[in-house]
Computed example of a mutant assay.
Amino acid sequence: MKRDYYEVLGLGKGAGDAEIKQAYRKLARQYHPDVNPGNKEAEEKFKEATEAYDVLSDPEKKARYDQFGHAGVDPNAGGFGGFGGGFEGGFGDIFDMFFGGGGGGRHAGPQRGADLRYDMSLTFEEAAFGVEKEIQIPRLETCPDCQGSGAAAGTHPSTCSQCRGTGQVKTAQRTPFGQFQTVRTCPACHGEGKIVLSPCKTCAGQGKIRRVKTVNINVPAGSEDGLNLRLNGDGEAGAKGGPPGDLYIVLHVKPHKFFERQGNDVYCEVPITMVQAALGAEIEVPTLDGNVKMKVPEGTQTSSVFRLRGHGIPYRRGNGRGDQHVQVLVTVPTKLNEKQKELLREFAESASEQQQMGKKSFFDKVKENLRDAMG
């Protein structure tokens, strides 16, 4: 017994087109025969998911399935029995008779072209300050020789004689309920209403050709990872005079070896010596604009953070920039010679623990707490 198609895709009834497509893609990647060579179970699951998607992704089939279940989309399903001889043709024909054939068989009008996606890699600086890039996009374009008609130069598509240009054929059938009319897609023109007798040689009668188009992309300053840029009309050509689709540029920003971005602010770590931390100093700090001088006050503790205003990421909307936050890390000297060690010992003997620690010592705090406790 077949499983429910919604159950196969892991969805609930009423799932939308996007959910159905996403669920199928996930299962297809998991159970595709190329990923699971020789695995019969995976092959059956792939076939089962594909069959479910074939039905649920088609509005007409989905409508039949939602109302009649598997019988509504099974061409081999039996007809209504017990009505004076029964009905030949199956549930699909019955649905066509009562509901006008769903969406099939109607002459299609202008159709919008497909959208395209391009994944663009950027450096940290390119995303921060903006950049102009030239990319190559392979896409379907309207054939310049036939202007999308599919007919050779000097000829035109002919009206289909079988459906007389409607894209539909109608047949009358008698049933136990009376006589009904079935409307189906014309098999001769496939619902187009016209037939190309002399196909265009450039596009082989398709009306479109695949070409590579050069597109200039202006990446705005302040762009972040994952941002989508939409270029109207740069997708694939539409059909029958329909508008072209759009081109979506998805940005992927490479991480920086020194800076980390949070919103429009940037963060970095800079090492300083023990002497610079104790006596204070003016140090050079790398920024997105080059090195700048920053004052470190005397007695600076490790992990202290200083702000460089206006050295962050430009705002994508509006003026101004974020800030740069610099965390200083005090380094301890290594491989000291005997003279240097002796100087440090002298300093340790002459300085209080509070001076060496840069703050109240543990014992000072204990003494204070005892005095407070005793009143």
Results as ranks from 00 to 15, higher is better:
G100N: 11
E43P: 00
Q162K: 15
A18I: 13
D119K: 04
D289R: 15
L227H: 06
G238H: 05
V266Y: 06
F80Y: 08
K365N: 00
M1R: 08
G82V: 09
E41A: 12
G72T: 01
V326K: 14
E141R: 05
H190T: 13
V366I: 15
F91M: 09
F68E: 04
K335R: 10
F87D: 06
K295C: 08
A23T: 11
G233M: 07
L336Y: 00
K367W: 04
E43W: 11
G245Q: 02
P75V: 10
R139S: 03
D54G: 13
A348P: 00
F259D: 07
G69P: 01
V266K: 03
V296R: 13
T214G: 07
N218D: 13
E236M: 04
H32S: 14
T202S: 10
D364L: 00
G312F: 06
H311N: 14
A278T: 12
E60D: 15
A373N: 05
A278P: 02
P271A: 11
N369I: 00
T159G: 02
E44S: 07
H107D: 06
T334W: 03
F83L: 15
R211G: 07
P271S: 10
V326M: 09
G290F: 12
E269N: 13
M1K: 08
G81Q: 13
F80Q: 08
Q173D: 06
L122Y: 00
L288A: 06
P187K: 14
K257E: 15
E41Y: 01
H256A: 11
G207R: 09
H252N: 14
G299D: 10
G148D: 07
G178P: 01
F80R: 08
A151V: 10
V275P: 01
V328D: 08
C189G: 00
L308I: 11
R317F: 11
Q179C: 01
Q354P: 01
A52R: 02
D119T: 04
G86M: 11
G154D: 13
G103D: 14
G69H: 01
G205I: 10
A239C: 00
E368D: 15
T334V: 13
E260H: 04
E224S: 09
A77L: 01
V196W: 09
N76H: 12
P110W: 13
K367I: 05
K293P: 09
P333H: 02
G322D: 14
P37E: 06
F87E: 12
K61M: 10
T142G: 03
I272Q: 11
F95L: 11
D246R: 06
A348K: 14
V326H: 04
G207T: 03
G72P: 02
T155G: 12
Q262Y: 10
G92Y: 04
V296A: 13
Y65P: 01
G193N: 02
N264G: 01
K240N: 08
D372E: 05
Q327D: 02
T159S: 02
V326Q: 09
E269R: 12
E41G: 03
T166G: 05
F129Q: 12
A127G: 15
G375I: 01
A237N: 00
